[in-house]
């Protein structure tokens, strides 16, 4: 498949946005049970959710460049019963709306008490909004990942590892960003976030490497024999039927050499997982200065862009069997 920059940006940006919101709300949830010091709603929670909102808005804006008819994009909410893409189109604005409400409630300090837990902690409106945002963040990630994982013949994608990895990679980049953000906004939380970012980065690395190993062992289920229905071991395409290009020769081919793909794979394993993990561990255990954290996020985000490029490039669409002369 051809990696489309708009889709790469959409999936990585909203992944980081969701992860950041989860991180911001995790601090509030921990603080509710006195596991972490409570933070200033305006300075930390509102600003953090504003950054998460901005990331999602940027991803949403990027996604419009993928459409042939962006003015009709509103129609995409129609088929949520069958289409994961439609579900994502609903879940993304819903998540953004809840993040916005959460941020506004934090700014206005709008905290009507909804319930009091038997042990004492008070569930207020911001907490309820945070829970709703958390659920929507996971819903959105699953919808985004299932767009790819639900296509059975794109076998590199059709795996439970796809949604798991989208959740882990989004979470890792979001928590790394939260660590960098809390340097200025909530210094007491930096180590907490750096630790969780390290755990999530390592988990994402494990998940992604597992999917790389799985995909390396895949045997194609469709062959040129099943594609044209002729049982002969040697079938060679002599003509694809036209001399120019077509949608089919552009959309489903990345046109890069295998060596280029291998380099991108090495790059993203290094940049998305190894380097940020080293920086986060260096900060948490080795006394690296705080400036390592913004760098960790920048490197990780660039690495995740490369990871998403590879995610598309490694997927081999069976329609390419009909274009053997250019494959």
């Amino acid at each position: 498949m051809r990696p489309d920059p708009s889709v790469l940006l959409l999936t990585t940006l909203i992944g980081a946005g969701q992860g950041l919101f989860l991180a911001i709300f995790t601090a509030q949830a921990y603080a509710l049970f006195d596991l972490l010091p409570a933070q200033d709603g305006h300075r930390f929670h509102a600003h953090g959710s504003l950054i998460a909102l901005a990331l999602c808005a940027a991803g949403l804006a990027a996604s419009f460049f993928h459409l042939g008819r962006p003015a009709r994009a509103w129609r995409a909410a129609a088929r949520w019963r069958t289409s994961w893409l439609s579900r994502e189109v609903i879940a993304l604005p819903a998540f953004m709306a809840v993040v916005l409400l959460y941020g506004v409630a934090q700014v206005l300090d709008w905290r009507p008490t909804l319930a009091t837990l038997p042990s004492g902690p008070v569930i207020d409106a911001t907490f309820a909004l945070g829970v709703a945002g958390t659920l929507l963040a996971f819903t959105l990630t699953v919808c985004t990942a299932m767009i790819y994982a639900c296509l059975p013949f794109l076998r590199e994608w059709a795996s439970p590892l796809t949604p798991v990895n989208f959740i882990l990679m989004g979470g890792a980049s979001g928590f790394t960003l939260a660590a960098a953000f809390s340097l200025a906004a909530a210094p007491a939380l930096v180590r907490f976030y750096a630790g969780w970012a390290l755990i999530l980065t390592l988990a994402a690395a494990a998940g992604r490497i597992a999917s790389l190993m799985r995909n390396a062992r895949l045997r194609p289920r469709s062959t040129i024999q099943t594609a044209i229905g002729i049982k002969h071991p040697r079938i060679v395409q002599k003509s694809m039927g036209f001399t120019g290009a077509s949608f089919n020769t552009r959309e489903f081919f990345h046109r890069r050499a295998p060596a280029f793909l291998r380099h991108v794979r090495t790059l993203f394993v290094g940049a998305a997982f190894a380097a940020p993990a080293a920086l986060l561990a260096g900060y948490a255990f080795g006394g690296l200065p705080g400036v390592a954290l913004p760098w960790a996020f920048a490197i990780q985000f660039a690495g995740l862009l490369a990871e998403r490029w590879y995610f598309f490039a490694e997927a081999n669409h069976p329609q390419n069997l009909y274009y053997g002369v250019i494959a």
Partner: peptide, 15 residues
Amino acid sequence: RCIGCKYCSWACPYG
């Protein structure tokens, strides 16, 4: 009604 998202072309194994 088509928005040109190309998702259906990804979902067609026959191109």
